[in-house]
Amino acid sequence: MEDWIKRVFLASVLTLCASYAVAEQERGRGQAHAVDPDIERQQIDVDAIDSEDFEIGVYYGILSIEDFGSDTVAGIRAAYHVTETIFMEAAYGMSEAGETSFEVLSGSAQLLTDDQRDFNYYNVSVGLNILPGETFIGSRWAFNTALYVIGGIGSTEFAEDDHFTINFGAGYRLLFNDWFAMHVDVRDHLFDSDIIGTEKTVHNIEFTAGFSVFF
């Protein structure tokens, strides 16, 4: 009989202890939960978000060199997009001048040597994206586009002399996705030259197409 009472008493004590322990544990967990946000606070780190403000690309086209005919031009360009409207660009292009009509007609007279016909330029420019929009190709494809105007200064090496050069023009950028774009660009490169005797401002119109990537 005593054993039976002892057993019931012990069982009750154990049950009480266990339920107290569980309650304590739960209370503890509740308290831990209340302070959790302090420990696991998550901040948005703007720097950790991938930004794509830089652009680098290549282009190829035709450059009409005043008095010296038209020839192919190839170049590289790098740009930094400051805002949705403004970007800064640096470009380097290479071409080669042909012959003047005087050289062609006279037959043998040469105004410039072969080395002097190298036409290399670099420039730094500022561009403004105007008329942003979308181009639709068929019913399934829509591409972001922008028409931009651009102008800047630089230097042109032609006939073994460097000439301070102003450039201005306009272009059209079509983005295939967020980071890959196609460009079509028309630019005038102006500088003062005395290569054919008298000093004058020459216009060199350039028409190019190219590709670029944003990173």
């Binding site: 978000i49 930004s51 403000d53 997009h81 400051v82 805002t83 967020d178």
Partner: peptide, 11 residues
Amino acid sequence: SLLKRKTSWFK
């Protein structure tokens, strides 16, 4: 979800 940024715009 913030995927990427271009100038002052977030994708």
